[in-house]
Amino acid sequence: MQRVNMIMAESPGLITICLLGYLLSAECTVFLDHENANKILNRPKRYNSGKLEEFVQGNLERECMEEKCSFEEAREVFENTERTTEFWKQYVDGDQCESNPCLNGGSCKDDINSYECWCPFGFEGKNCELDVTCNIKNGRCEQFCKNSADNKVVCSCTEGYRLAENQKSCEPAVPFPCGRVSVSQTSKLTRAETVFPDVDYVNSTEAETILDNITQSTQSFNDFTRVVGGEDAKPGQFPWQVVLNGKVDAFCGGSIVNEKWIVTAAHCVETGVKITVVAGEHNIEETEHTEQKRNVIRIIPHHNYNAAINKYNHDIALLELDEPLVLNSYVTPICIADKEYTNIFLKFGSGYVSGWGRVFHKGRSALVLQYLRVPLVDRATCLRSTKFTIYNNMFCAGFHEGGRDSCQGDSGGPHVTEVEGTSFLTGIISWGEECAMKGKYGIYTKVSRYVNWIKEKTKLT
């Protein structure tokens, strides 16, 4: 034993070699072989497995989906700052455009905790909710729209109204504003409101030439003092309507412009014939205590009207009353817009006519005020429907199939267009061939041609 100890002390290297040989010859039971080890760690190889990531292109799944990435790591994937920024906006807080917040056709661009709407022409605001041009839906104005110097929408209202708090709607500024039905039992019968379409306001006024200088022999019209197929109006439903009495009662109609003036057809009036105007009328054979009678003290036909040349060209006249009318729910003026808007309103496509005229061709006159909704007829169809001249200051309205029309005794009465609950004068009943005849239409004086003249002559002093 002493000898062994001496050998170990003198030859430590020998001992180490012996131990190493023993270990190498022993069977290893701690580690699995290569094949079995792979069965336990069965993990798919990654895209760049075996390579240094710093030297390969980034992978979106590896960089940002398996674990949260930084902007720089995302930049490695896209290799483009702009594309990385677009991805980053949604990656950080989701897609803010998912709810489609942009209105009126706006395009949404996502941002971090926010979004941006790219608005089409005519709109602005956070969600493109603000109209900035009158060309689109009248700028959301209830009545009139004008573009300011910086191309912003400025709404306005006709006389007797003021802008509401929203700067879009119009509200009454006087007790009985024009064009409004205020009798409670008839307010439910107000005709369907007309909503502004998209309009090209630059070209809204037709490029028409008034044929002022045409000389033409007097034409022989049949029954051209021209509501057939209409309905009984309720008291106060058309408070701007008046009836004219002269040699015979209810020979023509008219509309209240203001307390002192009536507008009617020029062919209705004769110099030297006494005319009485009755406002607030409903049943011409009954006294309903809503009527107001006034005498006409002055007749002003349009300066281009000449019955000797043509009885229905420039067929418009103004009547001055001896005493002002007292405005109330049964006696209310009709609204008159400017030339541009009167023309736009007419193009809405349908209007209402009213009167006490004959209820059928050569038949009896109506006792109760009649009204009828009539569609506008395109000019080409209008011209083809008659052998008589249709001037540019006239328009056609009615039904091709016949059966409904204005008729004798309705002449001078109103053709009105309702705009968001307020009625505007767009025409004056003038003439036609018979009444409600198939293929024939009622012919009306186009008020847009005469609004400046009306307003100039009827100013209240």
Rank of each mutant, 00 (worst) to 15 (best):
R3P: 07
N5S: 05
I15M: 14
I15N: 00
I17Q: 00
I17L: 10
I17V: 08
G21N: 09
G21R: 03
G21Y: 12
C28Y: 00
F31I: 15
D33K: 04
H34C: 09
N36K: 13
N36E: 08
N36C: 05
K45C: 08
Y47V: 10
N48T: 14
S49Q: 11
G50M: 09
E53H: 05
E54C: 08
E54Q: 11
F55R: 15
Q57D: 13
R62L: 12
E66A: 10
K68H: 09
S70W: 04
S70C: 06
E72V: 15
E72T: 15
E73H: 11
R75I: 14
R83P: 12
T84A: 09
T85Q: 07
Q90M: 05
D95G: 13
D95I: 10
E98D: 06
S99R: 13
N100C: 15
P101I: 11
C102N: 01
D111V: 14
I112G: 15
I112R: 13
F121G: 08
G122R: 10
F123M: 13
G125E: 03
L130F: 15
D131M: 09
D131E: 12
K146Y: 10
V153Y: 10
V154S: 11
V154Y: 08
S156H: 06
S156A: 07
G160A: 02
Q167I: 05
Q167N: 06
S169T: 10
P172M: 04
P172L: 03
F176A: 04
V181A: 08
V181W: 06
S187D: 04
K188E: 11
D198C: 14
Y201A: 13
V202Q: 09
N203L: 09
S204F: 11
A207D: 08
A207Q: 12
E208Y: 13
L211K: 09
N213H: 05
S217G: 06
S220E: 04
N222S: 13
R226K: 11
R226H: 11
D232I: 09
K234W: 08
F238R: 05
W240Y: 02
Q241H: 10
Q241C: 05
A250T: 09
F251V: 04
G254W: 00
N258T: 04
E259M: 05
W261C: 00
I262H: 00
E270V: 06
V273L: 08
K274R: 12
V278D: 03
A279W: 01
T287V: 13
R294F: 01
I297L: 10
I297V: 12
R298F: 02
I300C: 03
I300T: 03
I309Y: 04
H314E: 05
D315H: 00
A317L: 02
E320Y: 02
L321H: 00
D322L: 01
P324Y: 03
L327C: 03
T332Y: 07
P333K: 04
D338H: 06
K339V: 05
K339H: 09
K339Y: 14
L346W: 14
F348H: 04
S354A: 14
G355I: 03
W356C: 06
G357D: 15
R358S: 12
V359T: 07
K362Y: 14
G363C: 07
R364A: 14
R364Q: 09
L367N: 11
Y371T: 13
L372F: 04
V374I: 15
P375I: 12
D378K: 12
D378S: 05
R384F: 06
S385Q: 13
Y391P: 14
N393P: 02
F395L: 02
C396I: 02
G398H: 04
F399L: 11
H400R: 13
G402N: 12
D405E: 15
Q408W: 14
D410A: 08
G413D: 07
H415K: 01
H415L: 07
E418N: 15
V419L: 12
E420D: 11
G421C: 02
T422R: 03
F424I: 00
I428M: 05
S430L: 15
E433Q: 14
K440M: 07
K440G: 13
I443T: 11
Y444P: 00
Y450L: 00
V451P: 00
T458A: 06
K459G: 12
L460K: 15
